[in-house]
């Protein structure tokens, strides 16, 4: 890790560094191709919203990038490391620099919240028990939870708390990239709004790069710097909100300028 990488993030240079570079990605199950020659770049310090119809392959793309699904062809580079040709050590080093928030939290049900957050720290860093406890409390504070929550088990948490704890665990090792799979799904609008705020705040304080799969128009409007729309296994449109609104692709038009989003825009205006 070169020194001063984090400073670059805050300054936002004119030519942002590409942290994830996906080229010509093909993923399929059986005879069906889900992702068909997809290209995508994610720049450092950006919050990328990744949208698409249900079943269009948003989660598949994310899971392929983080190595949970095999790909047919194409290359994926994260931090300039090609994950296919990387040695296991290089791969592990890359994995240490990203955090993943799964859709349903994927908290380890037999560990307490504190142990869940400490789990990656315990594996990768040899630090004292005291520091582990303090850092777990710090991470909980960062995601807006009280330290008492640390003693609870995942089954005792509400939906919003589960998401926050899962985010705290994703942030345990201070990753540079976080992958969020539908972070606001299943939350009430206020909870979802708070969560968006939280992601934006953390992005600012920690200089994170965020790859967010989402359906939430609010999130797309409020926190995303850039939006990529996936359809027919490719990126249809890619750019900030204005590009989305100006696009004449039927699905993109329907999604961002349809009835639901018009009502949404009206609400935003009146607010």
């Amino acid at each position: 890790m070169a020194q001063g990488e984090r400073e670059e993030t805050a300054i936002r240079p004119a030519h942002p560094e590409t942290v994830i570079r996906v080229r010509d990605l093909v993923v399929g199950f059986g005879r069906k191709l889900i992702i068909n020659h997809l290209d995508l770049d994610v720049y450092r310090g950006q919050i990328l919203g990744f949208v698409g119809a249900s079943g269009a392959g948003k989660s598949v793309t994310m899971r392929t990038v983080i190595g949970l699904l095999p790909k047919r062809s194409g290359t994926i580079e994260v931090f300039g490391v090609n994950l296919d040709t990387a040695t296991p050590e290089q791969r592990q080093a890359v994995e240490r620099r990203w955090g993943v928030l799964f859709q349903n939290g994927a908290l380890f049900s037999s560990l307490t919240v504190r142990q869940n957050i400490q789990f990656p720290m315990r594996e990768y860093l040899r630090i004292s028990e005291r520091l582990l406890d303090e850092l777990a409390a710090a991470k909980l504070e960062m995601v807006g939870l009280r330290p008492d929550v640390g003693d609870k088990y995942p089954s005792e948490l509400s939906g919003g708390m589960t998401k926050r704890v899962a985010l705290a665990r994703a942030l345990a090792l201070d990753p540079e990239i976080v992958f969020l799979d539908e972070p606001t799904s299943g939350l009430d609008p206020i909870g979802a709004g708070d969560f968006d705020e939280l992601i934006a705040t953390l992005q600012r304080t920690l200089g994170l790069t965020v790859f967010m799969v989402t359906h939430d128009l609010d999130s797309l409007h409020t926190v995303c710097d850039r939006i990529a729309v996936i359809g027919d296994g490719k990126i249809l449109v890619d750019g900030p909100m204005e590009t989305m609104l100006a696009s004449d692709h039927p699905w993109v038009k329907e999604y961002f300028s349809g009835k639901r989003s018009r009502a949404h825009a009206a609400r935003r205006r009146s607010a």
């Binding site: 890790m1 001063g4 990488e5 984090r6 303090e134 850092l135 960062m142 201070d174």
Partner: peptide
Amino acid sequence: QLDTFGAW
């Protein structure tokens, strides 16, 4: 460089 560990 500073992250949450150092800040803490």
